[in-house]
Simulated assay, not measured.
Amino acid sequence: MRPWINAPLLRALTSPAGQLSSPGRRRHSANDEDKSPSHCVRAAWISDVHLGTPGCQADALLDFLKHVECDTLYLVGDIIDGWQLRRNWYWPQAHNDVVQKLLRKARKGTRVIFIPGNHDEFARKFLEHSFGGVEVAEEWIHTTADGRQLWVTHGDLYDGVIQCARWLALLGDTLYEFTLKLNRHLNSWRARMGLPYWSLSKYLKLKVKRAVSYVGDFEQALAREARKRGVDGLVCGHIHHAEMRDIGGILYCNDGDWVESLTALVEHPDGSLEILDWAAIMARRQQLPQALTQPA
């Protein structure tokens, strides 16, 4: 049985030797020379990667990290899924490659700030510490190029289910994993039929009345807290629903996730913010060579 995540495991994750690599396999992604980045931005926010689960889209995230260059990279919680690793250890090579890629970015000059969430709450024991150049913080205030202040938090501390009924949150997490497993089988069939990827869990989240109400309550709670803090807006994750909108004069930004939506929030050099749909970006990149080879 694997030891639970603690300081020794964090040191293993941040080791240049990559102690979690699968035996006999080359760590290809983390140490390969990067291609010229296609997106140069001032800051980027990613969250809800859920390394340690079968649902994690590690290859897509590696592609994002290769093509996006930023001064500051925020890891806004649930990067490692401690809840899942407690139940069943799952750590393929691609997940180790993501960790090593993040550490490599930190070594090469990107400021990497990790704000733990509920699934990687073990890291909250190490606030104000640095592992391999990755700073661990409870929250952050980011100032954009145009002077706006954004409060950065994972968001679970403002989720009533997490705070008041943890057993219900754990049950929901188990059901969510089941939905993702079902979704993988469904999309395997859709791929054979030539149909595009479709997220069952995302569909349920947006269509089930109680789920829609939960998302709305979560957004309102965070907007109220940001208003109390006197900031212009906030960046969070947690609910796996990328969005950027005004809530009563507060700019609410959710960077999404790397399980369902494959999205990130970025700040451009002029201070403007944008949600990048990386699945769509990869699809366009794949279509371009095909279009160039088509006869006129």
Rank of each mutant, 00 (worst) to 15 (best):
K108P: 00
K108I: 07
K108F: 08
G109W: 13
G109Q: 04
G109L: 03
G109E: 11
T110W: 10
T110N: 04
T110R: 06
R111E: 13
R111C: 11
R111W: 15
R111Q: 13
V112S: 01
V112L: 02
V112R: 01
I113V: 15
I113F: 09
I113C: 06
I115S: 04
I115R: 03
I115P: 01
I115M: 11
I115C: 08
I115A: 09
P116C: 03
P116H: 01
P116Y: 00
P116G: 00
G117W: 05
G117D: 03
G117P: 07
G117R: 03
G117K: 02
N118P: 03
N118G: 05
N118M: 05
N118H: 12
H119S: 04
H119A: 01
H119P: 03
H119V: 07
H119M: 09
H119Q: 07
D120T: 06
D120Q: 05
D120R: 07
D120F: 07
E121Q: 13
E121F: 13
E121P: 01
E121R: 14
F122M: 11
F122P: 00
F122V: 09
F122D: 09
F122C: 08
F122N: 02
A123Y: 02
A123N: 02
A123K: 00
R124I: 00
R124D: 14
R124N: 11
R124M: 10
R124V: 07
R124K: 09
R124G: 11
R124L: 10
R124W: 11
R124F: 09
K125H: 14
F126A: 12
F126C: 06
F126E: 06
L127K: 02
L127T: 02
L127A: 01
L127Q: 05
E128T: 08
E128G: 06
E128I: 03
E128A: 08
H129G: 06
S130E: 10
S130H: 04
S130N: 08
S130Q: 07
F131V: 10
F131P: 05
F131H: 11
F131N: 08
F131S: 14
G132V: 12
G132C: 10
G132H: 10
G132D: 14
G132R: 12
G132W: 05
G132I: 12
G133T: 11
V134E: 00
V134Q: 01
E135L: 10
E135A: 14
E135S: 04
E135F: 12
E135H: 15
E135Y: 04
V136S: 06
A137E: 13
A137K: 09
A137T: 03
E138Y: 14
E138P: 01
E139I: 00
E139C: 15
E139L: 03
E139T: 12
W140Q: 11
W140E: 15
W140T: 04
W140I: 05
I141G: 06
I141W: 00
I141C: 07
I141E: 10
I141N: 09
I141F: 06
I141H: 10
H142K: 14
H142S: 15
T143L: 07
T143Q: 14
T144V: 13
T144H: 14
